[in-house]
Design a binder for these strands. Structure first.
Lengths: 214, 214
DNA sequence: TGTACATCAGTGAACGCGCGTTCACTGATGTAC
DNA sequence: TGTACATCAGTGAACGCGCGTTCACTGATGTAC
């Protein structure tokens, strides 16, 4: 690791907190450097302009978020071969880890950026869209595997269900922030867990055997 | 209606669109008056400072939103005495009206403000919290009435369910915005409808008779 | 090991612009008597 | 109906500050020979 990487990381960390509290437009470079303890030209050495800060922020957030999700759901898949059980374990772990965050989940940068997209250039906007799509894809794949074993009720759609799961995370973060009650997010995730169990448990009574398509 | 009220309304309308696209902090008064066609002092005649614009924006949004929700779910209650049917009709109407919006739902101002709360004074922040709480209360009451007739599965909680419904709306708006596909929101609302039917239909087979507590 | 050069990680000063806010003023409309 | 006054819905000019960005420069570290 280069020496400057630590500075860059410090800037990104400070910037993320500010963006989630005030929005990207109201996060001033002046304020960031004051907190990070360097000069303005020091900042511009690391980021050629403000849009590059946005790219850096998003990249960092996506990486951390992917790690979180893969840790939780990957662990679930380690612990159970049954895709439903694996997914439920993933949700439980997510809820536990979210509950363990001292002041709650800090906020979703993708949501924040979605609500300020006119501030960014096309590259950043496309990155926001890709990130959103890839979370849904991740969930769709898992839910699809479950649906092969535990058939869904007929009017259900795996893609819509994936979006609903994603919405409960994003919506839970908003609720917890708006009502200043960090518990609400993990509670919602656990509630979602109950829900998923119900959805896949309602079509037939106990479909424990894998159904193989003819 | 006073003459100035039309101007005030025009300012608020322009400001809302800008806030939802760029955030409150990056919405400049200069830009609003350019579009509204009046001078800066004209703006300050209507709003004594920028935080009063925020209050005005939120007040207007809350009013419109309440009207939307009460129109949809109130109509549901007119059309059916059964609280579940009434709620399902409310969801269907919501989905239809959302689908009819030419460029989709413009965005939730409460979400936007939640993600920029350090920009506002305490009064505005409390208004944001109250608004969020009152949507949940609205849903909790309706879902509670349903739960008296169609018992919920034992591990379900009406309050958590109300929050989940609220999350699906907020999350659906984000998804539609992020993926630039306005259809996603009404689809999610209809999917939620399917879901609610499943939840209240799973405890017993056909509980058509009202259960009266001993 | 010494020297030459390149890259890294910044500093310091200056820039022009747009921002929110204030203030003194004004013409049109409404109200009292 | 006329006059006096008050309120409404703004205008125009000025303010100081902070913003993002640029540019020429620099001392420390790394690399080649």
């Amino acid at each position: 690791m280069r020496k400057g990487d630590a500075t860059r990381e410090r800037i990104l960390e400070i910037a993320e907190a500010s963006v989630l509290a005030k929005g990207f437009g109201s996060t001033s470079i002046e304020e960031l450097i004051a907190e990070a303890g360097l000069t303005k030209s020091g900042f511009f050495y690391h980021f050629k302009d403000k849009n590059e800060l946005a790219r850096g922020l998003l990249g960092r957030y996506v990486q951390q978020n992917e790690k979180f999700i893969e840790d939780a759901f990957g662990r679930g898949e380690e612990l159970s071969d049954d895709p439903l059980q694996a997914f439920l374990i993933g949700l439980t772990l997510s809820a536990e880890w979210l509950a363990a965050m001292p002041s709650g989940h800090p906020g979703c940068l993708v949501t924040s950026m979605t609500y300020q997209d006119r501030l960014f250039d096309r590259e950043v906007r496309e990155l926001v869209a890709q990130t959103t799509q890839s979370s849904i894809d991740f969930l769709r794949v898992r839910l699809g595997r479950i649906a092969e074993v535990y058939p869904l009720p007929p009017e259900y759609d795996v893609e819509q269900l994936a979006m609903m799961v994603s919405s409960v995370f994003d919506g839970g973060i908003i609720l917890a922030k708006a009502l200043a009650n960090p518990c609400l997010l993990p509670q919602q995730v656990l509630f979602l867990r109950t829900h998923i169990k119900l959805v896949f448990g309602s079509a037939t009574v106990r479909p424990r055997l894998k159904l193989v398509a003819a």
